[in-house]
Design a protein around this nucleic acid. Sequence first.
RNA 1: UACCCCAUGGUGUAAUUGGCAACACAACUGGUUUUGGUCCAGUCAUUCCAGGUUCGAGUCCUGGUGGGGUAACCA
Length: 568
Amino acid sequence: MKQDPNSEEGAAERRHFIQLEIDADLKEGRYSQVQTRFPPEPNGYPHIGHAKAICADFGLAKEYGGICNLRFDDTNPSAEEDKFVLAIKEDIQWLGFDWGENLYFASDFFEQLYGFAQHLIRTGFAYVDHQDLETIRATRGNRSRPKDPGQDSPYRERSVEENLELFAAMRNGDFEEGECVLRAKIDMGAANHLLRDPVLYRIQKAVHHRTGDAWKIYPTYDMAHGQCDALENVSHSLCSLEFENHRPLYEWLLDHLPMEHKPRQIEFARLNISYTVLSKRFLKQLVEQGLVDGWDDPRLPTLRGMRRRGYTPQSIRNFCSRIGLARTLSTVELGWLEDELRKDLNPVALRRMAVLDPIKVVIENLPEGESIVCQAINNPEDENAGTRELNLRREIWIEREDFREEANRKFFRLKTDGHVRLRYGYVIHCHGVVKDEDGQIIELRCTYNPETGDGKTPEGMKKVKGIIHWVSAEDSVPATVHLYDTLFTTPNPMQDSDGKDFVERLNPEALVVKENCQLERALGDAKAGQHFQFERTGYFVLDPNHDGSNGMVFNRAVSLRDNRPKAK
RNA sequence: UACCCCAUGGUGUAAUUGGCAACACAACUGGUUUUGGUCCAGUCAUUCCAGGUUCGAGUCCUGGUGGGGUAACCA
């Protein structure tokens, strides 16, 4: 068996910068084992961008024989909900990763984090500030003159006792939201503005999805994240590049707190994919404005959307391994995702015939009531998949686009007075076209050549190049098929600077519904989530959201690669 | 504007840490094929620019240019 150097198994050869850093840390004894964590905030549904992080966090832990925790970063109760905790867990498991016993919530650490804050106050590194939000922002630095130092808060030099008392009062609910915050006392002149006395705790009286109203104050990201990492014994805390300038603060807090264990933050570039958006904000907009049918719409790059569309966990993992991990901003071609799915499905998906846009063909020399049994191969990539029988009958369906009254040489399917082979069947000849009053073709009159079974070309006959799929009318199962295309019409919908809203770049043909499809009989007992290759049209999955009460609905996960030259 | 980060083919990543620019995808050409699929073979870059160090620079240094992130009581 040939090994793909980009597959999960073969990836050992090429090491990305994080692997090299971990190698060095292990070699120099900075850490004795690798411990990572995936830290989502439960405020939305994961998408393919999260899959990159999940694969990195869980994948690296596995590779080094370590552990990866799942930690919910639930420090902002007004944004978070329990349903997202469930959804995130579900998606991670679907992707094929398992946190086992290692499930944490930042909210589990609230008491300890409170103690850390008291420690900072006692050591003179934190104070309660009564200035309002605008004042704090303004005094941290002038945006047009960022080099000027900020101004100290008038409350900056309060006594330890007073700060301790006020902080306890904050916790107790004695203050209203916005009345005061706890700030770190670092350096109001720091070049990195994040170090200009950042806010550590703020008052929020919202109900937390796990701790209810037990807390009136909540730690900020900076106060919570690194400390949770440390408490969980995380060695390598991976995050995206936007947290880069939080790293000095991450380290400052760890250095000023009584911690023996110091995790290390390493940032990598987040994922961009052409023709789609990977930003929670914009995805949310599409869902809320009803521009797509919910978070699991197969057009969306959400994990639940992709799952419903027919993407496999393996294909997504292979994709993540193929794109690698780096600090360079990049946009991956959407085609890679499709490619990985085809690669995953091609060896295993059973072949079936399905006519998506049917046109009737009458085979005149095949009498009514008679049928010819044809042996069809279930999967040419897998002998063990066996064969099935198809009945060729007088009336069959073929694809409307497989017939042209006139066409150039590059079109080698059926033409008037031309020949084409029915897959696993016989060569037919078209000698008549029946149209309705509007000129629409409603039927083709053909004859079949009995000498052409089993792919044979009789002596003296020109070999027929075109082969098309078909379904016998009497045996067919009607169905609806959803065809998907890119969500947007341009590769960088968010970056185009033509002044238009990205919504205007939505692709109206991202979903095309085909309602009168005719499937071969074997598809009648397809199970939800089962993948098929419809010959010549793509890979399809039975939509799990349709129970079959209104007929079957198949989603096209991805088309077959299409190399056809443009035929006229 | 300030701080930080990044720059290798159409795309994404490599380059034994200073030693013949590699892999995959796409594209193009051909071959095989009862799927215009799969599979097979071939073609496709003087590493953003300018200097410098060196026998030797994609890699190190200096200066540009371009792109990105941040400047929240979100994460």
